[in-house]
Amino acid sequence: MLSITYVSTADRTLSRPELLSMLSAIRPRNEELGLTGMLLYRGGNIIQTLEGPDEAVDTTYSKIERDPRHRGVLLLLRDPVEQRLFPDWSMGFHEVSVADVAGVEGYTEFLRRPATASLGDQAAPAYRLLELFRENMR
């Protein structure tokens, strides 16, 4: 199993309906491919950790690199993992209100509150990058 973390900039700021549409389209596709992880977005800044079967992760990342909606795609981490570090995290949002997404599967309050759960030493690099993004986003 493989875990990657990358950052990029959206080609434009995404609206609430666009973010919700993206969640609806990506989550089922990721489930079919056996991918889990976390995508955080704020003000055009993106950081995502993807994990799952090596080929599915590599293929998905290659598509992201070529996607014109992303600029400045930069791979930060690429590590083999024995178990999923974010098995229930598929996306995190800041731009949408809690009322807009409270019932949407995969929504997390990660951007709004300090992390309280320890994910263990193996998760430290990817989790720390997500924390840095949360702390420094515009």
Results as ranks from 00 to 15, higher is better:
Val57Arg: 03
Gly43Phe: 09
Gly52Gln: 06
Phe110Cys: 04
Arg78Asp: 09
Ser62Asp: 13
Met38Tyr: 02
Arg112Thr: 11
Ala99Glu: 13
Leu33Ile: 01
Trp89Tyr: 15
Arg27Thr: 15
Leu20Asn: 01
Val57Ala: 08
Leu129Ser: 01
Leu50Phe: 08
Ser97Cys: 01
Gly120Met: 12
His70Phe: 07
Asp79Tyr: 04
Tyr6Trp: 02
Leu35Ala: 02
Ile64Gly: 06
Met38Gly: 00
Ala56Gly: 08
Glu65Gln: 12
Gly43Met: 11
Gly34Arg: 00
His94Gln: 04
Pro87Arg: 07
Ile26Ser: 10
Pro68Asn: 05
Asn136Cys: 06
Asn136Thr: 15
Glu105Pro: 14
Glu31Asn: 06
Glu105Trp: 12
Asp11Val: 01
Gly44Trp: 07
Trp89Phe: 15
Leu130Phe: 06
Pro114Thr: 03
Gly103Ala: 12
Met91Ser: 08
Ala10Tyr: 08
Asp58Tyr: 14
Phe133Leu: 09
Glu105Gln: 13
Asp67Phe: 02
Glu31Ser: 08
Gly106Trp: 07
Glu32Asn: 12
Val96Arg: 01
Ser62Phe: 09
Glu18Met: 03
Ser97Lys: 06
Ser21Gly: 10
Gly92Lys: 02
His94Val: 10
Leu85Phe: 09
Asn30Asp: 03
Tyr41Trp: 14
Ile47Leu: 11
Gly43Ser: 13
Leu77Gln: 12
Thr49Trp: 04
Glu31Thr: 07
Arg16Glu: 02
Leu50Ser: 05
Ile26Ala: 11
Leu23Gln: 08
Arg16Ser: 06
Gly103Gln: 10
Arg69Lys: 13
Arg16Ile: 00
Phe86Pro: 14
Asn45Glu: 15
Asp79Ile: 06
Pro80Thr: 13
Leu35Tyr: 02
Asn30Pro: 07
Thr5Arg: 00
Asn30Leu: 09
Ala10Ile: 07
Gln48Pro: 06
Met1Trp: 00
Val81Asn: 05
Leu19Ser: 00
Leu129Arg: 11
Leu132Trp: 11
Trp89Gln: 15
Thr13Asn: 02
Ala117His: 14
Glu109Cys: 03
Phe110His: 07
Arg134Leu: 10
Asp54Gln: 15
Asp121Asn: 14
Glu55Ala: 15
Ala102Pro: 01
Leu40Asn: 12
Pro80Lys: 14
Asn45Thr: 09
Val104Gly: 00
Pro17Tyr: 02
Leu19Thr: 02
Gly43Leu: 06
Gly43Arg: 11
Gly103Val: 04
Arg69Tyr: 11
Met91Gln: 06
Ile64Lys: 01
Gly120Gln: 13
Asp121Gly: 13
Val7Met: 01
Asp67Ala: 08
Arg12Gly: 07
Ala124Tyr: 13
Gly34Asp: 03
Gly92Met: 08
Ala25Lys: 07
Phe86Gln: 13
Val81Cys: 09
Glu105Ala: 15
Met1Asn: 00
Ser21Cys: 03
Tyr41Met: 05
His94Tyr: 12
Ser90His: 13
Ser118Pro: 14
Asp67Trp: 04
Asn30Gly: 02
Ser90Glu: 06
Thr9Asn: 02
Thr5Gly: 00
Ile26His: 05
Arg29Ser: 15
Leu2Asp: 00
Phe86Gly: 14
Ala10Met: 10
Phe133Gly: 05
Glu131Tyr: 08
Pro68Lys: 10
Met137Phe: 10
Leu40Tyr: 08
Arg42Ala: 12
Glu32Ser: 14
His70Ala: 04
Arg16Met: 01
